[in-house]
Design a binder for these strands. Sequence first.
RNA 1: GGAGGGCUGGCUGAGCGGCCGAAAGCGACGGUCUUGAAAACCGUUGAUGCGGGACACCCCCGUAUCCAAGGGUUCGAAUCCCUUGCCCUCCGCCA
Length: 429
Amino acid sequence: MIDLRVLRDAPDLVRASQLRRGADPSLVDSAVDLDARRRAALTDFERLRAEQKGLGKEVATASGEAKAELLGRAKALAEQVRTAQADAEAAAAELEEVVGRIGNVALDGVPAGGEDDFVVLREVGSPRDLAAEYGADFVPLDHLDLGERLRAIDTVRGAKVSGARFYYLTGVGARLELALLNAAMDAALAAGFTPMITPTLVKPEVMRGTGFLGEHADEVYRLEADDLYLVGTSEVALAGYHADEILDLSTGPQRYAGWSACYRREAGSYGKDTRGIIRVHQFHKVEMFSYTSVEDAEAEHERLLALEEQMLALAELPYRVIDTAAGDLGSSAARKFDCEAWLPSQQRYLELTSTSNCTTYQARRLGVRERTASGETRAVATLNGTLGTTRWIVAILENHQQADGSVRVPVGLRPYLGGLEVLPVVAPA
RNA sequence: GGAGGGCUGGCUGAGCGGCCGAAAGCGACGGUCUUGAAAACCGUUGAUGCGGGACACCCCCGUAUCCAAGGGUUCGAAUCCCUUGCCCUCCGCCA
């Protein structure tokens, strides 16, 4: 939720942000009008309510005929109070509906436009030249071919048991995921994050508060019988962790690293990334989440990005960092950096991490505040970022494949695989 | 699954349908005292919205809302009724 004060005092700022996002700027004008209407209705209600309270006190002390007369007046007034209250509540609800559709104000520097209007900040490492290494006629295997030869990935049985976009990680595949996620947890721990294993089912208000029930509500699994939602990321549970609390950030940001399963319906992505485990309904992820003061948010964002890059370096993957365009931010984020690894089989980049600065947008809706040195309360900023996911296996297998279809284990992951240096082919094609 | 008991401010814990945003204690903060600290004593101490005061903020004044959540009864609800959630105890069942 955007700050109503900003909406009131600087509607141009919000309007400009909407335009950069390719969203509807007229929502801002509707919201300003509705805000004025709500305040007027509230004032009416308060005046009547105060009158009612005063009259109530007279009723309490009166008796006999005077009391009967007062009661008559009080009854009439009660009806007016009811009406005024209903008006005020209706106006507030209407305002909330419109305000909820306005996205966070994109930070200065965020490129305008949609999905394709990102800016590449840097490219790190260089894609392997497999033709030069293994001969001009070498055809790189994709992650699924490799995964099947290593007996690491089984999508056939995943589909048999659960349907399309489900898979088993088997043997070294399962070990590789555990290794990667353990390495991610260790990196987070070393950087001062508190490790967390979080619930993956959450209540509607938490899901709504984190902003996942907006435009992309159909991406989320819902358990009708229990009125609970399956999370698409532990960000949801970590953001909800301090909901309705007043935090003490005087000693710096509060940092959490969540490990959880993630569930996504992938509605609307029919036919996209159908092969292998690039786009699946269920996967695991280690996610960083920070609560900071507004002042610290941008520095924390850089910090999260640096940690992501540290993990990509540990996995020895070539990647680029992009500054996502305003239209591709999602409602809560004010800025978002993605790291995309090179995918040899497809000759393209694939998103492996995403870190968002949600400024106070998410915290305001969830009621997460801090107490400042001077004693007031105010909304905190929230940030999140990916440290490792099942999808990383795709990039690791493809980028570290060897001529015979085996896969070299990045040095940094070896300690997590009992010193294993190579994932050997056990099921040749 | 069944039967009871409970849910009040940072914590403990009172609370008769109107005088209750709520006693008291603890904690915290400020002060007195002290070379300093402790103790003692004095004082302050919930959140949020709205309106006003030369109104960006702080501050002051007024007002409303919040006693698990939602609904109802009533001129008036922390207090009575209903529904839901959560916690505790007991019984049963199953990891």
